[in-house]
Amino acid sequence: MKSIVQGRPAASRGRSGLRSPVAYLLILPAILIFLVFTIGPTVFTFIVSTFKWNWLNPDQNKFVGVANYQMLVDGSQDPPFAATLLTSGYFVVAMVVGGTAISLALAMLLRKAGRINVAARTAVFLAHVTPLVATSIVWVWIFNPRFGLANLVMSWFGIPNIDWLGNSRFAMPAVIIYSLWHEIGFTTVIFLGGLTTISTELAEAARLDGCNAWQEFWNVTFPQLRPVVIFVIVVSSVASLQAFTQFFMMTGGGPGFDTATLGFQLYQQAFVFRKTGYAAALAVVLFGITVALSILQLRTTRSLGRNA
């Protein structure tokens, strides 16, 4: 504040206003919050994962080295870690492949301006802004085995009532349908943004050359959109890997452990079964996968910046 009072001398010292220790004061609140509640706890998770952690009495915490990680590998836990990974893989692959394909198709369909398209975009994005707890409840009702809307649709095709969320074959597809409904608005908007940056002249030229719509999309539009596609794939892998609330609300990880994904298992092992050390080992694995994907994301974002 001195420089304001003194005026001239401050200016003569050159860029003193912006080269000032005040900078540390400005970043302090943010850095402090991240250190205490994000970065510190992440390190702490690694420590907890090497302990047999006693929930009620921390004095009885016992260092066990890599024993919790051994439990991951030897499959001694219920459900075995490999099964959890497979369940997560099922969900992530379905969300990434289905979400990317559908939202790209919707973006292509709704890319032109106009009242109807704008209204349809609003409807698609509206699903994304609804709270997961709230709309999960609505979809549990839609998937109701006796009175649900989903079974009404099935009955039109002559299919008898399905116990969607209680049947090990249909529970995961049902959660995936809900999650696609919820997430597609976000990725569609990203694709719509990507489409505005690509050249329409090339597409018109392709048409002039006699390309049909599919050839035009596959050979002209898609290659230009590739960085956006990669970005969407990475973002939706990270998001679906961490999905929790819809599983908590719709299936509780069941039936059995059929929908117990990595994120859900982490919660269940830590806060229901109270196996904190083992859950921390799961958290370390989840963290590792997320870091790998985030690094991929940073790279693609950088290439996005170059192209867009």
């Binding site: 509640f37 982490l266 985030s294």
Partner: peptide, 16 residues
């Protein structure tokens, strides 16, 4: 800090 999933933070922050 953005790389850390919220679920990972649950256990340590519960203790904190």
């Amino acid at each position: 800090a953005m790389m850390v999933p919220q679920t990972v933070l649950l256990i340590p922050n519960f203790i904190i």
